[in-house]
Amino acid sequence: MEDWVHRALARWPNVPALFGWLQLDRRGRWLVRNELISRPQIIDTIGRNYAADEQGRWYFQNGPQRGYVALETAPLVLRVRGDGDSVQTHNELIVEQPRAVYLDEEGSLLLMTEHGPGAFDGQDLPWALERLRSAGGESIDDALPVALALPSGARTALTLRWSAALSLPVQRLDNAEAPAALGFQRDPQPDPPAGSALN
């Protein structure tokens, strides 16, 4: 978070959070009330002040106020950098330490990174698919349908070759199960009022 955010939080610590206004689509674009944000200064400010709370709800800290973000896929959208050899998040954080790779039922790849869970932008998914390898030596054209047919939670015979020194096993994970498995909320909601009883 930027210094001005910390100063605003210290000055106004109890500003109510906003829900249902801000969205992040599957291409890493920000929207306010379903309207695309196009001003680079606003996009950069959101990206620099984007984080998650302890419940896995991602938000933009706009001065003293949090704006919680509805996610179309994952909290981060991954893109191949201009060098063609490295990956960054939609808010320009370089991914250096991927920890796990997941394949959903549609063939999309999710990556657990040091910055949080991310999904490849559809335009950059071919970069990742080209780096898939089959442990059994089969061609990817043959191995990928087998992996897609596995139940969610199963380990596939695929690995993702991230670098010369790092290959990660690929696990099947249905899209609907990704938030619980990877610790984020796609549709964050306010906390229940203090003292309210659950029915």
Rank of each mutant, 00 (worst) to 15 (best):
R7H: 09
A8N: 05
L9P: 00
L9Y: 00
A10M: 08
A10N: 09
A10R: 15
A10P: 03
R11V: 01
R11M: 06
W12S: 04
W12R: 10
W12V: 02
W12N: 06
P13S: 02
V15M: 06
V15R: 09
V15N: 01
A17M: 04
A17Q: 05
A17H: 03
F19M: 03
F19L: 02
F19E: 01
W21F: 11
W21M: 08
D25S: 09
D25T: 08
R26I: 06
R26G: 10
R27S: 12
R27T: 06
G28M: 05
R29E: 07
W30S: 03
L31H: 15
L31A: 09
L31C: 06
V32H: 11
V32L: 15
V32N: 06
R33L: 09
R33F: 05
N34R: 15
N34K: 14
E35P: 00
L36A: 14
I37D: 01
S38W: 10
S38Y: 12
R39A: 13
R39G: 04
Q41G: 11
I42W: 08
I42C: 07
T45Y: 15
T45Q: 14
I46P: 00
I46S: 04
I46W: 07
Y50N: 02
A51V: 03
A51C: 07
A52M: 13
A52Q: 14
D53G: 11
D53M: 12
D53E: 10
D53Y: 15
D53L: 10
E54G: 12
G56F: 04
G56N: 08
R57E: 02
W58R: 06
W58F: 14
Y59M: 02
Y59S: 01
F60M: 01
F60Q: 01
F60P: 00
N62L: 06
N62A: 13
P64T: 00
Q65A: 03
R66E: 01
Y68A: 03
Y68N: 02
V69N: 02
A70V: 08
L71R: 03
L71A: 03
E72M: 10
T73H: 13
T73L: 13
A74R: 05
A74L: 12
A74K: 05
P75V: 05
V77E: 01
L78N: 07
L78T: 11
R79I: 04
V80R: 15
V80Y: 07
R81A: 11
R81E: 11
G82P: 01
G82R: 15
G82Q: 15
G82F: 10
D83P: 08
G84M: 09
G84V: 03
S86N: 12
S86F: 12
Q88G: 14
T89I: 13
H90R: 09
H90Q: 09
H90W: 08
E92F: 14
L93Y: 09
L93P: 00
I94Y: 12
V95E: 04
E96Y: 05
E96F: 04
Q97A: 14
Q97T: 10
R99W: 03
R99T: 06
A100R: 15
A100G: 14
A100I: 02
A100H: 08
V101T: 10
Y102S: 13
L103I: 07
L103D: 04
